[in-house]
Design a protein around this nucleic acid. Structure first.
Lengths: 235, 235
DNA sequence: GACCGGTAGAGTGTATACAATAGGTCAAAA
DNA sequence: TTTTGACCTATTGTATACACTCTACCGGTC
């Protein structure tokens, strides 16, 4: 929808984004324009522009004359986020079932089978995670509705800062794979309503799992804050 | 989610927004920072910030080193927009059915009945339109999911520039009212799935109607462009 | 006559300087 | 000792000046 090129503001936006995603910038960290400017070796102008963009993207919150802060999602909002995302992904699955080409479906099956292999042979869990998100991604793209894709991406983006909390509780990957299996079966079988329901519940459950894990780890927040501050100030 | 206060950039953003909505700035019009700056009596800086925000909101498109342009939705995208919106509103209706308080449902019924009165007595159609959007709005809020509300608002915003094309084809209002009637009935009866389906189809049909009307009027685009340019340059 | 490259001119991107605001600090009074 | 209020500093918001990019026009060439 909105095409851009490599202007400094964009570069900086991407840099901040990835720092948020990889955990250098923990939610709650406050961002200071001047400091960021010197850190990136530019003036405050492009930094401000990057911040404005990230605010609109929902990754940063800010009010007038106050510092920008990496958005912090309380558990209620996080729950809302997953609920909304599950509805959107469900809708996408519904549409994708009838709209994906044979090639697209085949690609999706391939991804799914790679994931199955990975799991069976106990390979790199990071790789499995990548395949998993490719699976979701593939279904969403399959709906061929630019706006629905955009909206889904938007919500997914806001979950990313919390994805790194994702951890293996015993049997979680197997459950995940089984869910995916049900979803792909429904899509291949052409049962749109089943596909919707399966993906919807799957995403919702993923959210629940993530939230439970975060809730547990919030008990010891001592280790989180100092590290974050440290990394923000490091040049 | 993101709180702001009255900074100049926000004022200008709102000004541009409303000009887009009321039709002063027709989709396709190009916005020049310098001109806008002098028009609003400020420097380019807040104007640029306003534009950045509107770009992220989807109302304006822009790529690096090029002028900002009021987003123009081709018919395909508009169709996507309505399809996505219908899914979101449908989801909201589903959730609202079980989550709205009695007070909320009552308020919704009141709005619906006011609309019925308005229609029966052939009162102001503008007022009817307002009640109609209040009805939709009320259902969406009723889902009590901040994110879903945000996402729905986001999409609705992008439809607004085209709403003014809305016109009365014979019997359209009656059909609209009948749809709303079915929706509110399902909600009051507590039948979430019926509510979802009813609102979803209703929004989709609204979109189709709008698109048909726009398609007809696109046949004579001569009158649109000069007027737009004219209005942009008027102080 | 059509096509191509170069060259102003307009307009965007960035830097810097200035203004205004918020939040903290310190002092004074209860 | 605590609280309150005024100032003072740090940081954001805005203006202006400059640099770079694009585009449209022009002359030349095929």
């Amino acid at each position: 929808m909105t095409e851009r090129e490599a202007t400094q503001a964009d570069t900086i936006r991407l840099a901040i984004e990835s720092e948020i995603f990889n955990g250098s910038l923990v939610p709650g960290t406050s961002l200071e324009e001047g400091r960021l400017a010197t850190r990136f070796g530019v003036s405050r102008t492009p930094v401000r522009e990057a911040i404005t963009q990230l605010v609109q993207a929902g990754l940063i919150s800010k009010s007038a004359h106050r510092r920008a802060v990496v958005s912090e999602l309380d558990s209620g909002t996080l729950l809302d986020l997953f609920e909304a995302l599950s509805e959107l992904e469900g809708s996408a699955a519904f549409l994708s079932t009838t709209r994906m080409s044979q090639a697209e479906k085949k690609r999706l099956v391939t991804i799914h089978e790679s994931a199955a292999d990975n799991l069976r042979n106990q390979e790199d869990p990071n790789e499995y995670a990548k395949l998993g998100s490719a699976f979701h991604h593939g279904i969403v793209r399959g709906c061929h509705n630019k706006i629905l894709i955009e909206a889904t991406d938007w919500l997914s983006l806001r979950v990313l800062p919390y994805r790194r909390f994702q951890v293996m509780t015993p049997g979680r990957l197997e459950k995940n794979q089984a869910d995916h299996d049900a979803i792909i079966s429904a899509i291949v079988a052409g049962d749109a309503e089943v596909a919707r329901e399966a993906l919807q519940r799957h995403t919702l459950e993923q959210g629940d799992a993530l939230m439970r894990f975060i809730a547990l780890n919030k008990k010891k927040p001592v280790e989180r804050l100092p590290r974050a501050i440290n990394e923000e100030y490091s040049v």
